[in-house]
């Protein structure tokens, strides 16, 4: 798509979504595609305007992103199908053009109105986002886990989710270039060591009580204070 057409499309989307969301939508261009960031209160209004006024009647996907301190981003991609009637009434998306809608929900209160009132096909996507990120979609007809097995605890796509296998086996290398597992002790204490999501930090890497137990008979004189402390915290 030429830059002129992309710019025209972004302007069209901004012209439609601006009044629909009360002027809160921020529309920009990202890799030849329009991206609209709306507040969580205007989520349903933006989706409805995209469907009714822009002609994006095809719901492609919906998912979440863990933004750490900022909360969770919920993103949905809607587009006009390739077999839509050409040249609709008024401004809108051409055939095959899509629109990415994003909103941000707070971390402590992750809740968003359900998009199933606008797009029925969003039901399973929201169920998956619910189980993976723990975001509540109010108004969803049947919000229950979709893919994870029964009895699964936690939301595995959150960055704070610790992978149990990584607890058992220590992270072998380093995340950033230039780091190495050899300079674990030599690194400057002020610098925070970077670890990938899912890998437990140093607070998880305490020795197990079973490991510290054989060390106590070797030193008979000293009391078994470290082993007792490890058991108490574990």
């Amino acid at each position: 798509m030429s830059p002129e057409r992309t710019r025209a499309l972004v302007e069209t989307v901004a012209r439609v979504l601006g009044p629909a969301t009360g002027g809160t939508a921020e529309v920009q261009e990202n890799y030849d595609h329009p991206v609209a960031v709306v507040p969580a209160e205007q989520w349903i209004a933006a989706l409805t305007a995209a469907r009714d006024e822009l002609g994006a009647i095809f719901f492609d996907w919906l998912t979440g992103v863990d933004e750490l301190e900022n909360g969770y981003t919920v993103a949905a991609f809607v587009c006009a199908p390739a077999d839509a009637a050409p040249g609709g009434s008024g401004p809108g998306l051409a055939r095959g053009q899509g629109l990415l809608l994003k909103t941000l929900v707070p971390r402590d209160h992750a809740e968003l109105p359900s998009a199933t009132t606008v797009y029925r096909g969003a039901a399973w996507h929201e169920r998956e986002t619910f189980e993976m990120f723990g975001i509540e979609f109010s108004g969803h007809p049947d919000l229950k886990p979709l893919l994870l097995p029964d009895g699964f605890e936690g939301h595995p796509l959150r960055k704070e989710f610790i992978l149990a296998s990584r607890v058992v086996k220590a992270w072998p290398g380093a995340k950033e270039p230039g780091e190495s597992d050899r300079d674990r002790g030599r690194a400057s204490p002020g610098r925070r060591r970077m670890l990938p999501p899912g890998v437990p930090g140093d607070e998880w890497l305490k020795p197990l009580p079973a490991v510290t137990a054989p060390a106590t008979p070797a030193s008979d004189d000293s009391p078994s204070a470290p082993a007792g402390a490890g058991e108490g915290e574990g």
Binding site: E153, G154, F161, E203
Partner: peptide, 20 residues
């Protein structure tokens, strides 16, 4: 750190599947 709830402190009632 809030890790998968109920997994860190105390004996978990239901062990999550796939965790050795």
């Amino acid at each position: 750190m809030a890790v998968n709830e109920g997994g860190a402190a105390g004996p978990p009632k239901a062990v999550a599947l796939g965790i050795p």
